[in-house]
Design a protein around this nucleic acid. Structure first.
Lengths: 89, 89
DNA sequence: TCCCGTGCTACAATAATAGTAGCACGATGC
DNA sequence: GCATCGTGCTACTATTATTGTAGCACGGGA
């Protein structure tokens, strides 16, 4: 599971999650993940772009690729689970 | 998404993945994740236990709780995605 | 008693991340 | 022209997380 190594890094899942809707600029992403440093954000974005999950459109910011969107679909049930989980805790 | 903070740590996803089948002892888990140090494995196991996703049965090693198993179900499509993804890369 | 496997921890060295500040570039308006 | 703004991105040090190695205490057999 090479994918787990990529996703199992700080802010990787979070970035994919934040980009689920509208594309976000670099600054907007920094605002959305307001505890992450720009250093690691840029590092993750580079990795995710290299992995073909995220792309940078010149005049629109970062967004998920087709593949990245599929990955997000995969995570949709996670949202519902997270709600039940936080209640059970 | 507090859950993302927990899962977005090194080896968290990997541990859940390795425990998907038979329960594993502490040593077996160290063997399965042969690049992880016991320090961080114990740290993650403590966090996952505190989160009610993993439990330690006295004479059988670590295994997923009912909640943890639900989380794993959530991740099942990820496996199929990972295969397509690695081919597309 | 001795040996073995278990869960777990101490310690120093290394890598990853946080926090702050700033760069270069292009578009826009004066 | 040129000042201003937002963009993506980076340098730098301080702090935290992780690694790598070794070892502890406990319990269950032989």
């Amino acid at each position: 599971m090479v994918l787990l190594d990529l996703l199992g890094r700080r802010w990787s899942l979070r970035i994919l999650w934040e980009l689920r809707g509208e594309p976000l600029t670099s600054r907007a992403l920094r605002a959305a993940c307001d505890e992450a440093s720009p250093t690691v954000l840029q590092a993750r974005l580079s990795e995710l772009r290299e992995a073909g999950l995220v792309e940078l459109v010149p005049a629109g910011g970062y967004r998920l690729t087709e593949m990245g969107r599929e990955l997000h679909e995969t995570f949709l049930p996670l949202h519902r689970f997270a709600e039940r989980w936080s209640k059970a805790l």
